[in-house]
Write a protein that binds this DNA or RNA. Sequence first.
DNA 1: CGTTGCTATGCAACAAAGTGCATAGGAAGA
DNA 2: TCTTCCTATGCACTTTGTTGCATAGCAACG
Lengths: 185, 185
Amino acid sequence: MALEHAILVSLLEKPGSGYELARRFERSIGYFWTASHQQIYRVLKRMESDGWVEVRDVAQYGRPDKKEYSVAGRGRDALSAWLNEPTEPESVRHDLAVKVRGAAFDDPTALISQVERHRQAHTDRLTHYLAGETRDFGDPPPDGRLDAERELQHAVLRGGIAYERMMIAWLDDVLATLARLDTGR
Amino acid sequence: MALEHAILVSLLEKPGSGYELARRFERSIGYFWTASHQQIYRVLKRMESDGWVEVRDVAQYGRPDKKEYSVAGRGRDALSAWLNEPTEPESVRHDLAVKVRGAAFDDPTALISQVERHRQAHTDRLTHYLAGETRDFGDPPPDGRLDAERELQHAVLRGGIAYERMMIAWLDDVLATLARLDTGR
DNA sequence: CGTTGCTATGCAACAAAGTGCATAGGAAGA
DNA sequence: TCTTCCTATGCACTTTGTTGCATAGCAACG
């Protein structure tokens, strides 16, 4: 259970509605923590009844009204407690890795197009990240001093960039391996 | 739903009992697909009733008897179908990344020990992988020809190695960032 | 002989996540 | 006006995953 905490962090960075959170989970945050809007609304309900967040109805013109959530004191405490409790290294789920090993028992060359699709998805993400890095962290902060929020967001983004580069290189490795198997030898 | 498929691949590589599968999921396969023994037994039951796998009772001496599972024709077909259906890039869950961003709203330096713990876990895994690589792929295959199963397993292992190296480098980056924030500046 | 530990299998209850569907206001264009 | 799209919120159902517990054979040790 940590979707709660991801939401808390996002709301601390900037309060917003369930819908806005869902959009953030599609872009920046979603690259290291995924969640659908249904999940987010459900968890927000629970967080509200637990007193972790506060709601404010916001009337909007030209679009439906929204509920803006922000972090309450109890939410901050919960986040603090979670931050200080040790977390185990994440459990990984790479279905493509399963497929690569499984391809040995089917047609390995048939996997090439799928690996290429994944490679494309990862290069797209990398491009997206690099654009975001230039946009958000290209210039030093106006006041020249170290801003923890900004520095840590940048560190996480650098992690995303490193991850995508690693994946692209590995997928190239897999493609080379599949090609080698194809020429038979 | 892909635990089924991970199990099929594992059983194709080598038939075995639920217990043995659980142990494999703790080591090699578990590094890119995790599953507990309870899950495995439950899914094996379903796979058996769907005719994906076949069971054979094996009497053992010096230890309890076991049920050895192997892949049936329908299981092979199911695997083949899954291999050929496009899969979306994996959903990632990096709680440490959430924590790094969250640390901006708490005490960033308190996170250092946790990052170090993760770094240690990843170096341990890397060592484990590299030892496995030397053991299993150190010498060329005796007959000198390309074995798809072996080559693809090696490719997946190389992916694991690349992942751990990337993570260690990123965690060092995070540690440097946290240290920079600590000295204040 | 009792305890501990490893192999081996499984159930039950619960929590979390995913899938599908529904509703509703308003903008933009055919 | 009708359709389509975007914003905004949510329920119901199903599938997965987690946690805790239970059983049982056999070996090794004190």
